[in-house]
């Protein structure tokens, strides 16, 4: 059936000049396919993402009568609520985010213990993922309101018979606490999911190796699991911080106008038919977000070698 071929034929033809490159319509369409599939998304992101970003910048430094100006930023800084808005936004972030990460890591590690019903726990803990900040604000309003459940509980149990105004402007501390609790309740889930995803990526060998070499449970968490999920934590931190700078509806629902934040000021400017002023706030949020992201990336840089890649 088969006869020996000249074994050298492939070698001999090496000496020849290569044949002309193949071209055909069907094949060039094939080659263009990956790009064609990207075109709609690229166009969409340009029209509804990139262009508005640039326009936001222009709106904030360009007045309707056509002059380039910094008046919107000047007015923003002079605004009575400006300092409060900046301070409140940063305070919420500084208190809520560490708590979210602490909770998320604890939750992630708990889920690693193969508890009975852990899928049910995961479901309960993940529900806030699909809860809007507005809804979260309303939920905690029912709890911290003047006639809310906390005051009711304190009265019924006789701890504090007189109702306390947790959400009042005068009680800044408790108002901030309520907002932070609502934020922790709402936004811990996303961090938890990222942490769990990171923990699941750790090969079980590492943990077993650590155990064999005598690491205790805490040592394994501290020296193996946490360092290995550092990239996940970094991503979660950037994501959470950017989202937290936009915190808005939860504050409005809980505090009304008693607690201005950056995004709610943008909303208010817009409501006052001042899109330029709103854009100035929006641009401030963008700038702060980008600076924070860059700072995070520099401070938390994990070298590739360190991650063993």
């Amino acid at each position: 059936m088969a006869t020996p071929q000249v074994t050298g034929d492939a070698l001999a033809s090496n000496m020849l000049a290569p044949p002309a490159a193949n071209r055909s319509f069907a094949r060039s369409r094939e080659r263009a396919l990956p790009f064609l599939l990207l075109v709609p998304s690229a166009l969409f992101l340009v029209i509804f993402f990139a262009v508005p970003m640039v326009q936001a910048l222009i709106l904030s430094i360009h007045s309707p009568d056509g002059a380039w100006t910094l008046q919107y930023f000047e007015r923003m800084v002079r605004d009575v609520n400006f300092t409060d808005a900046v301070r409140n936004t940063f305070l919420i972030i500084l208190v809520a985010i560490p708590l979210q990460f602490l909770f998320a890591i604890v939750m992630g590690l708990l889920l690693q213990n193969k508890l009975r019903g852990s899928s049910l726990f995961l479901y309960f803990w993940a529900i806030p993922l699909a809860v809007s900040d507005l809804a979260a604000g309303l939920v905690w309003l029912a709890i911290f309101g003047d006639r809310g459940f906390v005051n009711s509980f304190l009265r019924t149990t006789g701890i504090a018979p007189i109702a306390f105004s947790w959400l009042s402007y005068e009680n800044y501390g408790t108002l901030l606490m309520a907002v932070v609790i609502a934020e922790v309740w709402r936004a811990t889930a996303i961090v938890m999911v990222i942490v769990v995803a990171g923990l699941q990526l750790i090969p079980p060998d590492y943990m077993e190796a650590a155990e064999v070499f005598g690491a205790s449970r805490w040592q394994r968490i501290w020296h193996v699991q946490l360092p290995l999920i550092r990239p996940s934590l970094q991503v979660a931190l950037i994501l959470r911080t950017i989202l937290a700078f936009q915190v808005f509806a939860v504050v409005i629902a809980l505090a009304g106008r008693a607690m201005p934040v950056l995004a709610s000021e943008a909303y208010n400017r817009y409501g006052e038919l001042n899109p330029n002023g709103a854009a100035a706030y929006a641009f401030l949020i963008l700038t702060i977000s980008l600076i924070t992201t860059i700072v995070y990336l520099i401070v938390l840089r994990t070298s590739e070698e360190e991650m063993g890649q």
């Binding site: 992101l45 509804f48 993402f49 508005p52 994501l239 950017i242 817009y270 929006a282 980008l290």
Partner: peptide, 27 residues
């Protein structure tokens, strides 16, 4: 360009989407 496109998409997450709304309203 595949990796660049992926990176580009990831970086859009670093932009607060709140600020899209105001210029979009004007448009």
């Amino acid at each position: 360009g595949r990796d660049s496109y992926k990176l580009l998409i990831l970086t859009t997450r670093a932009f607060p989407i709140v600020i899209l709304s105001i210029p979009l309203a004007v448009n």
